[in-house]
Design a protein around this nucleic acid. Structure first.
Lengths: 341, 341
DNA sequence: GTTAGCACTCTCCACCATAGAGTGCTAACC
DNA sequence: GGTTAGCACTCTATGGTGGAGAGTGCTAAC
């Protein structure tokens, strides 16, 4: 029974055509005849794990079938050692900056699984201010550059309606005050420290105003969901035969553009702590009904967390995908550890 | 003759079906009968401006036909005042940071022209170092943050194989030296100034090593082609009926992924100084043969230049596209001027 | 519980006929 | 000479038909 479901799924995953009882007995050592297989297939269909495109066609797995498969039957296939080595090598080659790692992760996942690879940068929970810089643009505007201890850099334009025009030396003084008081602080503590600034001194009053903006930027960053999802290899997915009709193809594409939903998924994966799988109709958005996602978090819970994973047709090799995603997330763990140690 | 070509193109652009002589006399005041139109159509076809999908079908423009049209017949249709106002309003709304402008430009172009909108950030010619920051990551690694006067921020990881472990105070001292010597310098001048650093002093020697890296990063940035092309609204293009077959659809998609070629085009547009149009087969890459681009530079020649434009099917409304692209590039000009004034 | 046999159903493909759109050509017209 | 009406011709698109083939579900026997 499970053996047959497994055989159907694995056959369908490779051939992409509905699989009949005959093909099963020919290609798998099931030890029974096609007639027996047929009755079992009928049973699996009654349980909602398989369907029929039409009467005289073979069976294809339903989303429920895949769900049962990944939970009870499939074992993660670990990535072959050779490829593990190759990937490690690639990560070693790349410019040693976390900015590049998550992109490389997506690219790697894409080429290893022949699906679309997804990855987000590692995002800290409560960011710490590292350094504040102010650069004059003109007499009333300045560029605020905010470096966070966790590696992210935020930039904002500030308009200062001061009575007198602002020059760079003033800005430097303001920045010095802010750096002294806010360095290594979270948004909350930074806010408290701003309260001690006096309003009757021009520079201090400017510093307070800029400081409030800084806190706002940090807060926005803390509060923001992981929004930046980098993807690569969408073309792999588009080549799958199930997307031969152009409307389905369009749907896949708009699925990947659906950053809102991806962001939401990424959020729950980050919370879950291990590989999560979302299959076809389990995704609410209609665009997503034809695709599955295999996602895993990486990083250090409570400090910085990101997500890597793949997006492919529901007919994907889940065992392989899980193994590969698991490996890449582990690798990213190591890298983050190395960086934050 | 030109009136007929114009009618064919404008009709085809709106209907997306081959246009016959009868349809032309019905819908356009040409003052002649369908028979006359037919003979003119035959002539236009002999000149290579029109084709036939098959004998009993109407005419469709060739890429040459479009080329002739945009050069000799079409006038740019300026964007209606209402929409100009709306767009200005949107640009006013957005967080006042150039980072967001070019994305908004792409989005705006996409929705206005119902094609894919493209935009690159404004890239300076010879970047000036504004500020250098060093943040310790661990005993051997530091994060280099480099703020350029032109607004860009570059980040790199540095590994310092110093004899003794590196701490943040040391890095601060190094950064102070570098800021003092390199601020407001271009890569070339910065390099010269580094030469005066002495090797026998530990901090100065570190500063020299970091400084060399800084110069390298700035050089890389100066030398890089405009590489970051942001695009939006690809879905608009994918909905065009000419991309109903999924292989064509895939090609459009991979066209937009073809960053190398886009970068190259962007480069020549930046040099050209005005709206440039690339129609279908005029693009070398096969992926690009079904699409046209209307691109325009923005910014200040010699200081900072970026590109905005649209990518759509060859069957696009060039007049409208040119008008819209021209308006948006003009708007971006104003914004850049305002910022760099 | 398993199996062989068989009728049945449905898709896929090739083939064909027809309607319709649009052309090119010719001969007449101003 | 340019323009026009008329007409035969060509090609596509559409829809219907009829096997061939795949695969099922059922039944009866083991």
């Amino acid at each position: 029974m499970q053996a047959i479901l497994r055989a159907v799924i694995e056959e369908y995953v490779t051939t992409a055509t509905p699989v009949g009882s005959q093909a099963l007995v020919e290609r798998y050592q099931l030890g029974v005849s096609s007639a027996t297989v047929r009755s079992i297939l009928a049973e699996l269909e009654a349980n909602g794990l398989l369907t029929h495109p039409h009467t005289s066609a073979g069976r294809i797995p339903t989303d429920q079938g895949y769900r049962f498969y990944v939970e009870s039957i499939a074992e993660a296939v670990p990535l072959p050692a050779v490829e593990q080595l190759m990937i490690r090598h690639q990560f070693g080659q790349v410019e040693f900056a976390s900015e590049h790692w998550f992109r490389l992760a997506a690219t790697t996942l894409a080429s290893m699984t022949r699906s679309a690879g997804l990855a987000t940068p590692a995002k800290p929970r409560d960011a710490h201010i590292r350094r504040i810089d102010l650069v004059a643009i003109n007499e009333r505007m300045a560029s605020l550059i905010l470096v966070l201890r966790e590696g992210a850099i935020k930039q904002a334009l500030i308009t200062l309606d001061a009575d007198e025009p602002i020059d760079q030396p003033t800005l430097n003084a303001v920045a010095a005050i802010l750096n002294e008081r806010l360095a290594n602080q979270t948004a909350m503590r930074a806010e408290a420290r701003l309260a001690t600034l006096r309003d009757d001194d021009r520079v201090q009053s400017l510093a307070r105003r800029v400081g409030e903006r800084v806190v706002k930027v940090v807060r926005a960053y803390d509060g923001a969901a992981i929004e930046e999802v980098f993807s690569d290899g969408l073309l792999n997915v588009m080549e799958a035969p199930e997307f031969a009709q152009s409307d389905k193809l369009r749907r896949v594409f708009s699925a990947l553009e659906n950053r809102a939903y991806l962001g939401q998924l990424v959020g729950s994966v980050a919370g879950a702590g291990r590989v999560q799988i979302y299959i076809g109709h389990e995704n609410q958005p209609l665009d997503m009904r034809d695709v599955s996602l295999v996602l895993a978090p990486y990083g250090r819970p409570g400090r910085a967390i990101g997500v890597v994973g793949v997006l492919g047709p529901t007919r994907m090799s889940y065992s392989q995908a899980i193994g590969t995603v698991r490996f890449v997330s582990g690798l990213m763990n190591e890298l983050v550890d190395h960086l934050y140690a």
